[in-house]
Simulated scan of single mutants.
Amino acid sequence: MAVNSIGLNTVKAKEIAKDLNNLLANFQIYYQNLRGIHWNIKGKRFFDLHVKFEELYTDANMKVDLIAERVLTLGETPLHTFKDYTETAQVPVGKNISQDEKAVALIVDSLAELLKIERSILEKAGDANDEGTNSMMSDFITEQEKTVWMMKAWLSETV
């Protein structure tokens, strides 16, 4: 079994990096959605949501960097063009969303998609003894589950 410079099976590391690139593309769409709703939100909840959306896109931007750096750590090249992102991502694209409930629902739907991808990566990383990726996915999942809970509470829905 061939291993890379950080001691991981090269075949498994390449597969995880591919999945991380998929996650990266989805995070970039999610990030851009957050920027859009941050800019375009209207209504009586503007002040609260404008600040919350900025908090979320700042966090997403940080995660984008972490994912790309992990792809590099695994020996692969991160996706880095909008074409790659739009061709790869499954996260819904939100265009011209200015209504509060639609904006928050977009976040919930986007996070649900990200969580699916992250759980799949978590499983593969565990199988490959890739603790670095495993730890990152575990942290992302924990934070995003809490965000989904909060957004659904704001929407007055049950988790």
Rank of each mutant, 00 (worst) to 15 (best):
E123H: 13
N96V: 00
N4L: 00
K146C: 04
H38Y: 11
A25D: 04
E131Y: 13
N33G: 09
S138T: 15
I141C: 07
V71R: 02
L20P: 11
K116L: 10
T88M: 14
T81I: 07
T77H: 09
L72V: 04
L56F: 10
T73E: 06
D19C: 09
M150D: 09
N22C: 04
W149Y: 13
D109P: 08
L106N: 05
I141A: 07
L72T: 07
G94W: 03
G94K: 08
K63R: 14
T10Y: 00
V148E: 14
S120C: 07
M150N: 09
I121P: 04
L56W: 10
F47K: 01
L8N: 06
A68V: 02
G75D: 01
A60D: 01
V64P: 00
L155T: 11
E157V: 07
A25H: 01
P78S: 01
N129K: 08
M136H: 07
S110N: 05
V3L: 02
F82K: 10
E113V: 15
T81Q: 03
D130K: 09
S156V: 11
N61M: 11
D100R: 00
S135N: 15
K102P: 03
P78Y: 04
S120T: 14
T88N: 05
A2E: 04
R70P: 12
L122V: 03
D59P: 01
H80F: 11
E76P: 03
Q99E: 14
L66T: 14
N22K: 15
F27I: 04
F47G: 01
D130L: 09
N129A: 15
G7R: 05
